[in-house]
């Protein structure tokens, strides 16, 4: 334990903006916002050295609710924007936030290649297995028999996307799953994810209380994973392939692949110089 005086004291609230969230009361995304701000305070990162990038969806509103640099981008395109930002400004801590539809469907291909590229980003996906902002359609992680949407009255009949397995296979360097019902554990995992070099993927089981009210039961269903993380991708793959999706609270995989960090020749940063570099 260290004294407060030894550490620049940031409070979680220092990372929140004055804008009031408009999520539904009870939404797991409130907890994620609180866990992110707690994690940033614990890391004592000056707000001007952090950026949060998002796409579109309820959870993608997070940049507006933080006081750090934010970019609320195009649907599914948070990861390429964040990749560009991190490569241009490697001094920034770059977080990416979004939902399962934004990340795994509209932005699915970007997800694969962000994992593969392994730029030093922390991707926090609030997975509620539904498109909430557009009023409740099946998303890539929805179970095949969910009949809650009139667009899929008999369920989708399609096996859900397995983000952690796909992330691992594509090269993500850090993989964890947490529950929105345990914000303190989530903050701790986010701290670890930010500290770990390379592409860190944190799946948050974040209930949509409005269009998937049955997800309130997740609080009682989730269990703390019994095994600690492995650095062996094959072993992690076996665990994840046999996992029911409710083992939470621990890091599942930590790789040691060096992050993609290309070295550029010194430039003056002008547009003319940039154009010259790409001239045919």
């Amino acid at each position: 334990m260290e004294s407060c005086a030894q550490k620049k004291a940031y409070k979680a609230k220092d990372y929140k903006s004055d804008l009031k969230p408009i999520w539904c009361p009870g939404c797991g995304d409130y907890t994620v916002l609180n866990s992110i701000t707690r994690a940033l305070a614990e890391l004592a990162l000056p707000p001007e050295e952090v950026a949060v990038v998002s796409g579109i969806g309820c959870s993608s509103r997070i940049p507006a609710y933080t006081s750090v640099y934010g970019f609320h981008g195009v649907h599914g395109r948070a990861l390429p924007v964040a990749t560009g930002l991190k490569l241009a400004r490697p001094d920034l801590t770059v977080l990416v936030t979004g939902g399962d539809g934004d990340g795994f469907s509209i932005g699915g291909n970007h997800f694969l290649h962000a994992c593969r590229r392994n730029v030093d980003l922390t991707y926090i996906v609030m997975d509620n297995q539904v498109y909430g902002m557009t009023k409740g359609q099946a998303s890539p992680t929805t179970s095949p028999d969910w009949e809650g949407s009139k667009l899929t009255p008999e369920g989708t009949g399609i096996n859900p996307f397995q983000p952690l397995v796909v992330g691992l296979a594509s090269g993500a360097n850090f993989i964890a799953r947490v529950s929105a019902s345990d914000p303190i554990n989530m903050a701790q995992i986010i701290v670890e994810a930010i500290r770990h070099p390379g592409f860190s993927l944190v799946q948050v089981l974040s209930p949509c209380v409005t269009f998937r009210p049955e997800q309130a039961e997740w609080r009682d269903i989730v269990r703390t994973a019994v095994v600690d993380y492995t650095d062996d991708a094959a072993r992690a793959a076996r665990r994840l392939m046999t996992d029911d999706g409710f083992n939470v609270g621990k890091v599942l995989f930590k790789g040691s692949r060096p992050p993609f960090r290309p070295e550029f020749e010194h430039t003056d940063g002008s547009v003319a110089e940039l154009e010259a570099r790409f001239a045919l």
Binding site: M1, E2, C4, E42, P183, I184, N185
Partner: peptide, 17 residues
Amino acid sequence: YELPHYAPWDFKWATGE
């Protein structure tokens, strides 16, 4: 007083938060 620093997960709550 000079207060000790606790990480959020180091407080001695019996509850989560």
